[in-house]
Design a protein around this nucleic acid. Sequence first.
DNA 1: GCAAGCGTTCGACAGAACAGAACAATTATG
DNA 2: CATAATTGTTCTGTTCTGTCGAACGCTTGC
Lengths: 258, 258
Amino acid sequence: MTIQGTDKGDRVQSVVKTLDILEALWQSEGAGVTQLTERTGLPKSTVHAHLTTLRSKGYVVQDGDEYRLGVRFLSFGEHVKHAEPLYAASETPIEDLADWTGERILCSTEQNGLGTVIRACDGERSVSSSISVGTPTYLHCSAAGKAMLAHFDRSKVDRIVDTWGLPAFTDETITDWATLEAELEAVREDGVAYNQGEYLPGISAVGAPVLDNDGDVHGALTVVGPQHRLENEWEHEELHNQLLSAANTIEVNLLFSE
Amino acid sequence: MTIQGTDKGDRVQSVVKTLDILEALWQSEGAGVTQLTERTGLPKSTVHAHLTTLRSKGYVVQDGDEYRLGVRFLSFGEHVKHAEPLYAASETPIEDLADWTGERILCSTEQNGLGTVIRACDGERSVSSSISVGTPTYLHCSAAGKAMLAHFDRSKVDRIVDTWGLPAFTDETITDWATLEAELEAVREDGVAYNQGEYLPGISAVGAPVLDNDGDVHGALTVVGPQHRLENEWEHEELHNQLLSAANTIEVNLLFSE
DNA sequence: GCAAGCGTTCGACAGAACAGAACAATTATG
DNA sequence: CATAATTGTTCTGTTCTGTCGAACGCTTGC
């Protein structure tokens, strides 16, 4: 699934086209020119011209009749990861929490109104979800997203909902503002946010925000697991405490890293 | 340090400009418009137009008066990593080798005539080198590079040397073709390649190629460490054996993954 | 309060990106 | 085995757009 952005500020249209091609390439682990013309709606020669340029710079490689993303993007990706303070600060806490819960733990951050997983760690009985490092997600239908939204300024929340809307992914997805607003208020009271199969059917999550001293949001920490298992266990306060404690450890780590 | 590519096939010049801006941004963990203007040689308004476009697509974020690479690149980076068979195949062998040697172990691949580190693992007494996952490197001055070059077709080696040349980084760097050719022959005989401070002063490495059944190169595995320590120890055949054994394990893993 | 720096906007011109058709090279198909 | 239908690639004129320098607010430091 691709997440479509608002199309404001497309000053340089060739760049938009190149990005569309790269995104199509990203979704398809290698594709030919014709395949990319269908996916992007651009004429063959245009796609070809862009691919040639990208290839000459090493951002795309050609394997016979297939083009793939080049390893050059690896350096960008690693750079972004390490530039994010959360990445270093979350290493130990996330591992400990994965050991303790046995579930999959994610550490996410917000950018441009979307969430992105920065670091992931599997526990013994982890579900293999499609959400892994680098995956962009909507905020209104994820535990991490709701944990962050709950601590944003009201104006920022408005802007995000305005930009991205509240699209439904399952029957459980919150699609109206009133329900979301009530839930965010609950998150602020409980300290943790839930996701009960609102994005992927059968997959639930509990999330806690990672804040700094001023109350600004750095990101969120999430425990992901099968709905039946997690919803039975999160009744126990112990899961909350461990989650909040891990989030707090990250917060402390962040203090010393800056 | 930026690695400059050959400028053939710049069909879409706006794309080249955008990539230049992204690379400048990559080297500087956040920069302002003026700073990017100086670094790229492009006029301020052009840089701004490109940044606006990149921002609207989420590939760049604005923090006050600074622009940084966006987390969107994380998804590309992870995609590239996981698309590379070596990534999964090298996980266990690289960890075991790091434990055994106590040194830093790298697993690299070649693309476009340059090497790129796909996976890294630290041992107990690892040196903290500037080479980590995603770093592009020249092949003629790295152990991994020489291990790979030694098993490429002659025509491919010629093309690579033609494209990238043999630039010097230290006094030890091989800068002429005759010396390189002789060394590649030695690599084929020994099975392993050395780097004795040829890229970073004081840093040495031993590398072994990862081949498939047809003798085609998949990548290389490298032990990196301080020159004095590594050069004393690599006299012992034990290091060779462990390195070659780990490389071989990866080769076997690759057989089963395809 | 002035000046220097920043990011941002504007507008006119040159030139570059675009689209469509034609090309070569390969694979399917009869 | 020949033909047809793909593929990726090349070519060329036209038009639209990317470009650039100057001017604009705005903040920061003197």
